[in-house]
Lab assay of single mutants.
Amino acid sequence: LTVQLGNLEWHFDNPEQALKMAEELAKRYQLKVEIDNGTLKFK
């Protein structure tokens, strides 16, 4: 699973870790998370 923020990307083997990080980033920057083809992206 990949977490993508702008041109930064983090790759996780563990989806739970990816979701946890995505939630933290979304909270911190007040963004919405969307999943696009196995990639978590922020809007």
Rank of each mutant, 00 (worst) to 15 (best):
D36T: 12
T39Y: 14
A18S: 02
E34P: 01
T39G: 03
L5N: 02
L25N: 00
L25P: 00
I35P: 03
H11S: 06
V33P: 03
K32Q: 12
L5P: 01
A22E: 00
K27F: 10
A22T: 03
G38F: 06
L5R: 00
E9A: 13
K32Y: 11
V33R: 00
F12W: 04
A26T: 03
V33A: 05
L25R: 00
L19D: 02
K43V: 15
F12D: 00
K32V: 15
K41C: 08
L1N: 05
Q4D: 03
E24H: 12
N14L: 08
Q17H: 13
Q30A: 09
R28A: 07
T2S: 08
Y29E: 02
L1A: 07
R28E: 08
L31H: 02
L8C: 14
L5Q: 02
I35T: 05
D13H: 09
L19A: 05
P15I: 14
L25Q: 00
N14G: 05
E9D: 04
H11K: 08
N7I: 09
L5S: 01
M21C: 12
G6K: 03
K27P: 00
K32F: 10
Q4L: 12
R28P: 01
L25E: 00
K43R: 13
N14A: 07
L8N: 11
F42C: 04
Q4H: 08
G6Y: 05
K27N: 11
D13Y: 06
V33T: 04
D13M: 07
Q30K: 13
W10H: 02
A22H: 01
K43W: 12
E34W: 15
F12E: 01
A22I: 06
M21R: 03
T39I: 15
R28V: 06
N37T: 04
T39W: 08
W10D: 00
L8D: 07
D36I: 14
A22M: 06
V33Y: 15
Q17M: 13
K43N: 09
K41L: 08
E16P: 03
Y29R: 00
A26L: 06
I35N: 11
F12Y: 08
N37P: 01
F12I: 03
E9N: 10
D13A: 11
M21S: 03
W10T: 01
P15V: 13
D36M: 12
E23H: 11
Q17T: 12
D13F: 07
V33W: 15
V33I: 15
I35Y: 14
K20R: 13
L19G: 02
F12T: 02
E16A: 13
Y29A: 02
N14H: 10
A22Q: 01
Q4F: 07
V3K: 01
N7K: 14
Q30R: 06
Q17S: 11
I35K: 06
L8P: 00
G38V: 04
G6N: 06
L1W: 15
F42A: 01
I35W: 14
K32S: 13
E24S: 13
K43Q: 12
K41A: 04
D36H: 14
A22G: 04
K20H: 11
N37G: 14
F42R: 00
K20V: 09
P15K: 12
N37W: 04
D36Q: 13
K43S: 14
V3M: 06
L31Q: 01
L5K: 01
D13C: 05
V33E: 01
L1C: 10
L19H: 10
N7R: 13
M21F: 15
L25K: 00
L19I: 13
E16Q: 12
Q30S: 10
L40D: 01
A22N: 00
N14V: 09
W10I: 09
E9W: 11
V3T: 02
K27H: 11
V33Q: 02
D36Y: 11
G38C: 05
V3W: 03
D36N: 12
P15Y: 14
L31I: 08
L5H: 05
E23A: 11
G38K: 06
A18Q: 01
E23R: 10
L1M: 13
G6R: 02
L40V: 15
V3F: 05
Q17G: 07
K27R: 13
Q4C: 04
Y29H: 07
H11Y: 14
L31T: 03
K41S: 09
N37F: 04
N14K: 10
E23D: 10
L40I: 15
A26V: 04
K20E: 11
V3Q: 02
D13G: 07
T39C: 04
E16F: 12
Y29W: 08
P15A: 12
D13I: 10
K43D: 06
A22F: 05
D36R: 08
K20F: 07
Q4N: 05
F42N: 01
L19M: 14
Q17R: 09
A26K: 04
K32H: 11
W10Y: 05
K20Q: 12
R28L: 10
K20M: 11
A18T: 02
E23W: 10
H11D: 04
T39N: 06
E23F: 14
E34Q: 09
K43L: 13
Q17I: 11
K27E: 12
K20T: 09
W10L: 09
H11C: 08
E34Y: 15
E9P: 03
L25T: 01
L8F: 14
N14I: 09
E23K: 11
L5T: 03
L31P: 00
E24G: 10
V33K: 00
T2V: 12
N7Q: 13
G38R: 05
K43M: 12
N37S: 07
D36E: 14
Y29N: 03
T2P: 03
L19W: 15
R28M: 11
N14S: 12
A18N: 00
V3S: 02
E34N: 05
L40Y: 13
E34G: 02
F42V: 14
M21G: 01
M21I: 09
L8V: 10
E34R: 03
I35C: 08
V3E: 03
L25S: 00
E23G: 07
L19E: 05
F42E: 01
E34C: 08
M21N: 01
Q17N: 10
N7V: 10
E16R: 09
T2W: 09
T39D: 03
